[in-house]
Nucleic acid binder design. Structure first.
Length: 750
DNA sequence: GGCTCCTACTTTTTT
DNA sequence: AGTAGGAGCC
């Protein structure tokens, strides 16, 4: 016991050993948040206050959940598999599987990811003859998910105009469609689970009786529904231990509600908030920068990070003429860091938006520095994997129209648009699924239905259809039926293998010229199934499909190598690195232009900046470029306001080195082309791109930083006219872009 | 049914 | 700049 808690600081100790009561822990970046959470679980169990059975621990990402389980397992010699530790969605899925009948779901209900959901909505809108100019599918999707995340069904959404009424109508049809197919989207997992507990008193009391302690990680990221779910589950008995950091709330844009922290204080009668402010990660200068920065936000719960370690190095700032120069600066610095012995995997290149990675990748590629970009296409979202999963879904649940439509004619088997439309009409008439419509139409001449399995089996053995596949709908029905038969008897990896061959998916990609990678991914799917069977408690096909939907991000290829880490600031949350490069610190980019019009947008951007800064342990680089290629256009930006919010005393401005990268002919020829950065040490290569022209009034140039008496700092982005008519277009930080007559506007070069 | 061309889009993202 | 998805043509 004492070993568990001996190395905790007083606040951590207080949090870990708190008696049975609800508590809010404000845990700053690097303050040992995960450690406190897991140690508390271990402490509660080891001191006999609760059995593993009585613990419910919730996180947002699978990665965090896994990390939690690993840490608990390292502290306690218990089997963690029976514990309810997981993501909101994972736990709700678990609950709904256990009570699928009470929840009104088929046993093998399938989970739609965002792309699946969008496909269902598109199909629905089309069937309803909706004008997709007026009602873009994405917006409908957004509307539905928002409503669900507020805990509202179509019948409960209040509408004040025709547009909203139309949206609600789509929502209602969407609900019906999902119910018909036995599929649920992500938000539905939460909402169903919530409704199940609301309606079913017996179950509610069962779970309330079971969970003595509910622990929540990243509490600031919970949405309204998740909060309601927690409240419902906790009841009056359970102690809810919520850990979060309002300063690291960066997901308001997708429904996270920091207000939950304040509600929590009230609803759970929290008498005392424990603050973890001692930081074990970063040196003083980095923390001071983060603290001063975040103080510009209003309505914070308030917290100041400190460290017992020294100030460390100053924060390095680099002002680059162009994004290319910025990238080559970073490359040079990375090289010298590596020479100093910092391993590449401990260096992160962070940026606000994914589009910024390209120029960095290019420079890294040319410098032969290994790197890994996070946040690309996920394994389970790849086209070929989606196809394969669609077959598997049909095996598990043939009513899944979405899956059926994806592969009814892939690989092609002569089912054209017309046949599909006929089937859809038929399904519409029957009010059932497409599969049911097929059965209706082909009953008698094709193997179909629960009792026709034997027939299919005989057919399969006597005349293997692989040699002579039946075409058309009849062939498709026979194919799926035979797969369903065969798969009942095989272990999961062999089911996948069988499906890949007999669906002819494997053959299709084997024949495809560029299909090698896809084929490899399909093989990887068999591997994924194999390891799933070894690791999971439940190794059924349905469980595997849930895993594929809920943990799509987990299965990322090519991890572990010694490589630089490239990612957005969002995906860096929770991670730490020896050295961090934060590039693109420009107004319009970070803070992003689009956030300026949103309520609280800039404050969220500032929290994002706070997250970025606090990722660095020892060294932090901040850089910006005066001109940048974005969406095919050169943009001229002024330095980010966040840069000015960090005290100058913490910063060290680096001089532009005499090595300047210029673009040559090859530069834009693509990632794997022969593009090359030319280094010309000591040569006076002009730092500015060649496309900058002198304006009429020659003292002003495009790209020049200027100051305006009223609008403040800006940068000239365009100019026109001669003599007294000369006008310049200036982009200012707050005011946006303005055309100014040089004769009147009091501009000073900055 | 599949290919090519054109257009529209481009903040952040987990489940 | 780059790409994804749709329309239209063979």
């Amino acid at each position: 016991m004492s070993a568990l808690i001996s190395e905790l600081n007083p606040e951590q100790l207080e949090a870990v050993t708190l008696p049975h009561q609800s508590a809010l822990v404000l845990a700053g970046a690097g303050s040992g948040k995960t450690r406190v959470l897991t140690t508390r679980i271990a402490y509660l169990i080891q001191s006999g206050q609760v059995s593993p059975h009585g613990i419910l621990a919730v996180t947002f990402t699978n990665k965090a959940a896994k990390e939690m389980l690993v840490r608990i397992a390292s502290m306690l010699p218990i089997d963690t598999r029976g514990m309810w530790v997981g993501t909101f969605h994972g736990l709700c899925n678990r609950m709904l599987r256990a009570h699928h009948q009470d929840a009104g779901l088929p046993q093998a209900f399938q989970i739609l990811d965002s792309a699946d959901q969008l496909a269902v909505i598109k199909r629905l809108l089309k069937a309803l003859g909706a004008d997709d100019e007026k009602f873009p599918p994405r917006q409908v999707q957004w509307f539905i998910n928002n409503a669900k995340e507020e805990g509202l069904r179509a019948s409960q959404v209040e509408t004040y105009d025709d547009f909203a009424r139309k949206m609600v109508e789509f929502y209602r049809f969407y609900e019906q469609q999902c119910n018909k197919e036995g599929v649920v989207d992500f938000a539905e997992l939460l909402l169903r689970s919530y409704e199940l507990l609301t309606r079913n008193e017996h179950l509610r009391e069962h779970y309330r009786g079971r969970f003595d302690h509910v622990l929540v990680d990243e509490f600031q990221d919970t949405n309204r529904l998740q909060y309601k779910w927690l409240k419902l589950l906790a009841g009056n008995r359970a102690a809810v231990f919520a850990v979060g950091d309002d300063d690291q709330s960066i997901y308001a844009f997708r429904g996270a509600n920091t207000g939950n922290m304040k509600d929590f204080e009230k609803d759970f009668r929290i008498s005392k908030i424990i603050k973890l402010e001692q930081n074990y990660r970063s040196h003083g200068n980095i923390l001071d920068a983060a603290n001063t920065l975040i103080r510009n936000n209003s309505g914070r719960l308030g917290k100041n990070l400190w460290t017992s370690e020294g100030h460390g190095e100053p924060i390095r700032v680099y002002n680059a003429p162009t994004d290319f120069d910025e990238a080559s600066f970073i490359v040079e610095e990375v090289k010298s860091l590596r020479a100093e012995g910092v391993v590449l995997s401990q260096i992160a290149l962070l940026y606000r938006s994914n589009a910024q990675s390209r120029v960095l990748e290019h420079a890294l590629f040319n410098a032969s520095l290994p790197y890994r970009v996070y946040g690309g296409m996920r394994f389970f979202e790849r086209q070929e994997i989606k196809h394969a999963l669609a077959y598997l879904r049909l095996i598990a649940n043939p009513e899944d129209d979405n899956a059926l439509l994806r592969i009814i004619n892939f690989p092609v088997r002569g089912i054209g648009m017309r046949s599909v439309e006929q089937l859809q009409d038929e399904a519409g008439r029957q009010g059932g699924s497409l599969w049911a419509a097929m059965g209706h139409k082909y009953r008698g001449d094709a193997a179909f239905g629960p009792n026709s399995g034997d027939k299919a089996q005989v057919r399969l053995e006597s005349k293997p259809w692989l040699d002579k596949p039946k075409k058309g709908v009849e062939g498709f029905v026979a194919l799926i039926e035979s797969m369903r038969q065969v798969c009942e008897k095989l272990p999961l990896p062999e089911v996948v293998e069988h499906m890949l061959e007999h669906s002819r998916l494997a053959a299709y990609y084997r024949a495809e010229r560029e299909g090698a990678d896809r084929l490899e991914n399909l093989n990887e799917l068999i591997n994924a199934a194999t390891s799933f069977v070894h690791e999971a408690e439940d190794d059924s096909l349905t469980a595997f499909l849930s895993h594929a939907s809920l943990e799509a991000g987990e299965h990322q290829a090519g991890g572990g190598q010694e490589a630089l880490q490239l990612m957005t600031v969002h995906s860096a949350k929770g991670l730490e690195f020896h050295s961090v490069f934060l590039s693109g610190l420009e107004e319009g980019l970070f803070p992003h232009d689009n956030s300026r019009n949103e309520v609280g947008g800039v404050e969220e951007e500032r929290r994002l900046m706070y997250v970025a800064v606090t990722r660095a342990r020892r060294r932090l680089y901040l850089s910006f470029a005066q001109s940048r290629m974005l969406h095919g256009q050169t943009r001229y930006n002024i330095p980010s306001r966040f840069l000015h919010e960090i005290p100058d005393s913490l910063l060290k401005w680096l001089q532009p080195v005499q090595k300047v990268a210029i673009r040559n002919e090859d530069w834009g020829t693509g990632r794997k082309g022969s593009g090359r950065v030319i280094h010309e040490p000591g040569h006076g290569v002009p730092a500015r791109p060649a496309d900058i022209r002198d304006s009429a009034a020659s003292q002003w140039r495009i790209g020049q930083n200027v100051t305006h008496a009223r609008f403040g700092a800006g940068v000239i982005v365009n100019c026109e006219g001669h003599g007294a008519d000369s006008r310049v277009e200036v982009r200012f930080g707050r005011t946006g872009t303005k055309w100014l007559l040089l004769e009147y506007a009091k501009l000073t070069p900055a």
